[in-house]
Simulated scan of single mutants.
Amino acid sequence: MKQKFHYATITEAIEQLKSQGFNLELSLESDHFKAEGKIYPADEFEIVDLYRYEGPSDPADEATVYALTSKAGLKGILVTGYGATADDEQGEETIKHLHYKYNQSQQG
């Protein structure tokens, strides 16, 4: 799935992604995701779409909504805020790795 347009709000993006089957609400913890009490290795997921939001005056209002799929067919949503991984170096590296794979797939 390639981003065709940008949803006006984070809420709208999440609602639309859920209507497309992205039903797992993922949270990033170090090098893995958690959802519904289960742990999923982050390296099993890839970004299929993302939406960035910037606050009009405050960088703390920035967020990114990720649509992620796993090799096992799971579809989930991850929302990160500005500095969300600032205290978690491994989490920051995990996001960078996912971005790298996403950027490589967009070029090919």
Rank of each mutant, 00 (worst) to 15 (best):
T80P: 08
A13C: 15
E44H: 12
D43N: 15
G73S: 10
G91S: 15
S19K: 12
Q90H: 03
H32I: 08
K38I: 09
A35Q: 05
T94W: 11
Q107G: 01
G108V: 10
I39N: 08
I10P: 02
D88I: 05
I10Y: 04
V48D: 08
I95H: 05
G21M: 13
A67Q: 05
E15D: 09
R52T: 11
M1E: 14
Y7G: 00
D49C: 04
S70M: 02
G73F: 03
A72G: 10
K2W: 06
L98V: 02
Q104Y: 06
F22E: 04
Y102S: 02
E62P: 00
I95R: 00
E15S: 10
F22Y: 15
G81N: 07
L17I: 04
G76W: 03
A67P: 03
E29R: 08
A60D: 08
Y102H: 10
Q90I: 15
G108R: 13
G108T: 09
Y51C: 01
E62L: 02
E44Y: 15
F5A: 14
N103M: 09
R52M: 07
Y102L: 05
A72C: 02
T69L: 00
L74G: 15
S27E: 13
Y40D: 02
E62T: 13
V65A: 03
A72W: 00
A60P: 01
A13V: 12
K101G: 03
F22Q: 05
A42N: 03
H99P: 06
Q106A: 11
D87T: 05
L98H: 01
I47T: 15
K2N: 11
T80H: 04
L24K: 12
E93S: 10
K18Q: 15
P56L: 09
A42G: 11
Y7V: 03
I77T: 13
P56H: 10
H6I: 14
P59L: 07
L24C: 00
D31R: 10
G91N: 07
S27K: 13
H97E: 04
Q16M: 05
I95V: 12
E29Y: 03
D49A: 14
E12V: 12
E92P: 11
A67E: 09
A8Y: 04
A86M: 05
I10S: 01
D49E: 15
G76F: 04
Q3T: 15
D61W: 12
I77H: 13
I77D: 13
G55S: 13
P56M: 03
D49K: 08
D49Y: 06
T11L: 11
S70W: 07
E15P: 00
G76Q: 06
Q107L: 05
Y82N: 15
Y102I: 05
